[in-house]
Design a protein around this nucleic acid. Structure first.
Lengths: 230, 230
DNA sequence: CGCGAGCTTGACGTTGTTCAACTAGAGTGG
DNA sequence: CCACTCTAGTTGAACAACGTCAAGCTCGCG
């Protein structure tokens, strides 16, 4: 499950991670020498909600999901992209993971000790700024999800989920989902059966073209309308 | 609506605001001399979602609500207590309010220019830490609300709303709500009528004692059970 | 005294869940 | 190579939870 061969350097990832931009090359080297590269297989759990958050993670390859567990039911907050850091909400806040993270595909993960990040926050105020910016960006993203799941009916929620995948994860109108119908259900807060029924409708109405996991957005306009008023 | 007579000093509020603890007295004076005290009447809007967030606010007296507007329907994120700062999610993040804030009662508000806070974050890393801690604390609180509104049925959601008021706002098992049934509906993501029906049930089942706006928690155990499994 | 806002109640309709059954494909072992 | 099993996906029918609508109530205020 875990290997410690380093294939990448932090310089390779810097363009993905906005909050690393303001680090000096010495600071980046500090991170580089205090991280491990791990690989996980599809289905494995990377962080367990409630466990000690001694590391901040970055998924450099593959896809994963951030989800909250509650009474055997999960709520997926987001599908993680390579622009995301995992574990920021735990900083200065109990040092416990407030969500779980699971691998949707085989993935490569960089694990950086939280204390390193904390020291950089203390010593480099521009980095602290960027961390705050990052946390706040996520906060607002979660606000949108909050609205989606509490104020919209199923069609709107599915539209939001598809748009999230298209805009934040795959950066394309056409993609192959690494997630199951059940995951889609946990992303939209509804039952698997209902997800299937609504995907079928969207397919019939030629808003999406769906072939199992392959999704193509045929009518972005209608999809946005569904998201807005659904 | 707004008066600029200063009745308080920041020293009076410091015990309420955890993230001010690490400020030196000079820094506190800096805030003190760069803030205005305002009063708002019940029903007035303090921040409008989407407007420029040039100030961070602190409600020193009275009650207010933070809510997200979407298509003429509101979702109340929380009822603000004197321990809360308003506007943190806007820092380093568009400088736009991502939610609206409304006065539930007549209130007194301190308004501090965001640039002052930003400078302090840059210059005092302990303060930056505390700001991050504060933002993250809110994030986790919102996670709980997220679970409440998406995974629980009405009884559980009402239980959560009552517990929020009791634990985070009034710090008592018995309180007089400053909010209407409609507000309760917007706090729980359900219809006003349903709120009323469920409050009545909880009253009949002797879990709560409800006399119009006066609420007394009779059985905290059952209320927690509802919150957990409702 | 009358008006309006907030509150309450009952009847009814809709949305979405649950349950049960069935299908398809992938992996396993004889 | 063929059962067997397991998981994911799909479908239909019954049901429950909740929202909507319409009406009436209460109380504070002008």
């Amino acid at each position: 499950m875990a290997r410690t061969i380093k294939k990448l350097s932090c310089q390779d990832c810097i363009y993905k991670l906005h909050c690393f931009h303001k680090l000096t090359s010495e600071e980046l080297d500090l991170i580089d020498s205090n991280r491990v590269e791990l690989t996980y297989r599809k289905g494995e759990i990377i962080c367990k909600q409630g466990s000690f958050a001694s590391n901040i993670l970055h998924v450099s390859e593959g896809f994963s999901k951030i989800y909250i567990e509650h009474n055997d039911k999960n709520l997926i907050l987001k599908v993680v992209s390579s622009k995301d850091l995992i574990g920021l909400p735990s900083i200065f806040n109990n040092n416990v993971f407030h969500y779980s993270v699971g691998a949707l595909t085989d993935i490569s993960v960089c694990s950086i000790n939280t204390s390193i990040i904390v020291n950089l926050i203390r010593e480099n105020s521009s980095f602290a700024e960027n961390i705050i910016a990052e946390i706040n960006k996520n906060m607002v993203q979660y606000f949108d999800r909050f609205i989606s799941l509490t104020q919209k009916q199923s069609h709107g929620r599915i539209a939001d989920a598809i748009l999230h995948l298209s805009n934040d994860v795959f950066f394309s109108q056409e993609f192959e989902m690494p997630i199951t119908r059940k995951d889609l259900a946990e992303l939209t807060g509804m039952s698997t059966e209902n997800v299937i029924r609504i995907l079928k409708e969207l397919n019939n109405d030629r808003i999406l073209s769906i072939d199992n996991k392959k999704i193509k957005i045929l009518s972005p306009e209608l999809l946005h309308k569904l998201s807005e008023f659904g």
